[in-house]
Write a protein that binds this DNA or RNA. Structure first.
Lengths: 216, 216
DNA sequence: AGGCTTATGCTCCTGAGTAGCACTTTGAGT
DNA sequence: ACTCAAAGTGCTACTCAGGAGCATAAGCCT
């Protein structure tokens, strides 16, 4: 899943084979999001998608585990980034919740290419909203990643595996991101990276109130 | 989805047709959980399941939207119960989070038949743990129900639809339940209803600490 | 009792996802 | 430079989930 640096002499440079594979993968994501957006997830068969990218179905399934995954790829990249970062977080004596919030903002900032990612995410999100199977896949991936992160937190913080607190803190951060994503997707106009980050900060700010507020 | 009282004179009594349908449904859930547990989710085809219950595949799909749903039925009943209850909650000036926690405990208590439900949940849970597609379906159903509950909360509390707090509070309650479920499933021995409720209370108690705790 | 509604069964069909085999490309050893 | 092993790719054939149309039977109302 994560790009790994291998056998080539210059670190950070990928072999021809690896670059080709990444290009194929990117082309599949790009074309899939375009076709799904245009004709709907169920209106596009895998055969059509593969034909458009000039790749066989076999190759598709070597890059993605399911039709749903190719539509969820942009957000998976974000969660993978967060998961990898947790390994190197400095915790000091700051509350874990705050460390995780900051880590998500950092992972999000890292996704800021020239706007390609943000455009993909917007499309992916809109598809998920009207396609239950995509939403289901995304939630499950998120849950899996959360379990992996929880495990890392337990290890790095020296906590009892039965302690529910790290997972709850993490789930709260994830729920905040989903809330931010919904709000951001609902906003009309061209999607921006800064806009998404702002929504996320705003939800984080509302979080303490979520625990204490009562009827107006 | 929810049992509705119809045309018969005595409220609470279902017509023969409706009772028969419910029996078929229950038989499908029961047999499905047994077969899936025995041979694995992918080791049982729908045709086999339908044959075992002596029902056609058409009938199966009139009762359930997918193979995954029949395995998730027990927990769906709980979420449906919570969703319906939210319509009649008294909020007073108690924090919404606490009202929701209490509501979930009440909905859970209502599931206490003689142990059949709890046995089904345990099996369903164990299946979900080793079958990603079941887990995905369950999370998506939960998310859908949460959206419906959020909508009800907005309406009943007179809140701005853009206010993220009710959904965050709800997500926290749901996350607590999932944590309790994981802990409960991990415990060996015969599953009990009281045990699950106790786990849930224990997670609720740990919740404030989840926001503030830092490295030991 | 008889007509109406609704569940059910049967059968055919599409498309996701898997597996086996042959072919090509790439990186490494000599 | 040449060769070989390893990995990626394409083709084909297969299983099974899930949906649609039409005919039948069971339960409901008058």
């Amino acid at each position: 899943m994560a790009a790994d640096i291998s056998s080539t002499s210059v670190p950070g440079t990928l072999s021809l084979r690896e670059r080709k594979k990444l290009r194929t993968r990117a082309a599949l994501v790009d074309t899939a999001l375009a076709l799904f957006t245009e004709r709907g997830f169920d209106g596009v068969t895998l055969d059509e998608l593969c034909e458009a990218v000039e790749v066989s179905k076999r190759t598709f399934f070597r890059n993605f585990a399911s039709k749903e995954q190719v539509a969820s790829a942009p957000l998976e990249a974000l969660w993978n980034g967060l998961r990898d970062d947790v390994e190197h977080l400095a915790f000091g004596h700051v509350p874990v919740l705050e460390v995780l919030q900051e880590a998500l903002l950092v992972a999000l900032a890292r996704m800021d290419d020239g706007g390609a990612w943000v455009t993909h995410v917007r499309r992916s999100r809109e598809l998920a909203e009207r396609t239950p199977s995509i939403a289901a896949y995304g939630l499950q991936y998120c849950d899996d990643t959360s379990a992996a992160i929880e495990e890392a937190l337990q290890r790095r913080l020296g906590l009892d595996p039965a302690d529910p607190r790290p997972r709850l803190a993490l789930d709260l951060v994830v729920a905040s991101f989903h809330a931010a994503l919904r709000a951001w997707t609902a906003k009309p106009g061209a999607p921006t990276h800064a806009g998404l980050a702002a929504e996320l900060r705003s939800v984080f700010a509302a979080l303490p109130g979520a625990l204490t507020f009562s009827m107006a």
